[in-house]
Simulated assay, not measured.
Amino acid sequence: MSSSKTALPDNDTVAQVFKALETETTALLEPLDLSFLTDYPVFAPDSRGRTRIHEPPELLKGVLHCFYRDIYGLRPMERELRNEDVWRQCGFEQPPSRWTLDRFITDFALVAEEVFIELVHELAEQVPVPHKSASPNWR
C-alpha cells in the first residue's frame, strides 16, 4: 500500500485531512502551558508603552512549529506562519511579521535554557514514566 497522498481519491475530505495533518505540531504543543513565559522580564511590556500584538506563548509555539518542520530562517518562518491553519492553531489572531519573530527569537535566546528546563519539568509531571517492574521487557 502506498503512503503517497496521490494514491488516494481526489476529494475535499481527503484534502482536509492532509491539511490538518500538516499542522501536527500544534497537537504536540497543546498540552503545554506556556503562560509562564510572560513572567520573564525579557518579555515585559515595552517601556515606551507599546503593546504587543503577539504574546510569547504563541510566538514560541510558532517558532517550535517551524523548527519541527526544519524551517529556521526568518523569511521562511514568516511564510510558514502565514498558513492560516498554522497561525490559528498556534493561537495568533493574525500571522506574526518577520520583525516580530526576530525580536522574539533575540529575546528568547536570553532565557532559552531556563524555559526548556521549565518545560522538561512540566512534561515530567504530565507523562507517567513506567517503573522497571511494570514491564517485563524493560531494559
Rank of each mutant, 00 (worst) to 15 (best):
Q94A: 06
W138V: 01
V86Y: 14
D102V: 04
P95R: 11
A44Q: 05
C90T: 13
L119P: 01
L8E: 11
F36V: 15
A112V: 02
V17K: 10
G73W: 07
V111A: 01
R69P: 07
H131M: 13
R50S: 05
P57V: 01
I53G: 11
F108L: 06
P128A: 05
E114L: 14
Y40S: 03
Y72H: 10
E118T: 00
K5L: 13
L34N: 01
I105R: 07
I117L: 06
E22G: 04
L34K: 04
T6G: 10
P130G: 07
P128L: 03
T100R: 13
P130T: 00
F36Q: 11
L60H: 08
S35T: 14
E58A: 14
V42I: 06
S135E: 07
A20C: 06
S47Y: 09
T38M: 11
T23S: 14
D70H: 11
S4T: 12
E122W: 06
S133Y: 02
E118C: 00
R52D: 11
P56A: 03
R79I: 09
S35P: 04
V14Y: 04
R139D: 09
D107F: 05
P9Q: 12
T100W: 01
L29G: 02
L37T: 02
D107Q: 12
G91V: 01
R98L: 07
F36H: 12
G62M: 09
D33I: 03
Q126D: 10
R48F: 09
V14C: 14
N137L: 07
I53H: 14
E122H: 08
I117P: 06
L29H: 05
S47D: 13
R48T: 08
D39G: 14
F92S: 02
L101N: 01
S47M: 04
L8H: 13
T106E: 15
L8N: 12
F116Q: 12
A109Y: 09
R98A: 04
D10H: 13
H121I: 00
F43M: 13
P96T: 01
L34V: 07
E122Q: 12
R75Y: 06
I71G: 06
R48D: 10
I105D: 06
G62I: 06
L110V: 04
D46R: 05
Y40H: 15
D46T: 03
W99E: 15
V17R: 04
E93I: 09
R50H: 03
V17A: 14
Y68S: 14
Q16V: 06
T38F: 00
P136W: 15
P128K: 01
F108S: 05
L119Y: 02
F67G: 08
P57Q: 03
T51Q: 04
K132W: 04
L21G: 15
L21S: 12
H121E: 14
S133P: 14
A134G: 12
E93R: 15
E118K: 11
T38S: 14
W138A: 07
E84K: 15
E125A: 15
P95T: 13
P96N: 11
V129R: 09
L28H: 05
S2E: 04
M77I: 03
Q126G: 03
L60N: 02
T13W: 08
C66L: 03
C66I: 08
K61S: 05
R98M: 07
S97N: 01
W87Q: 04
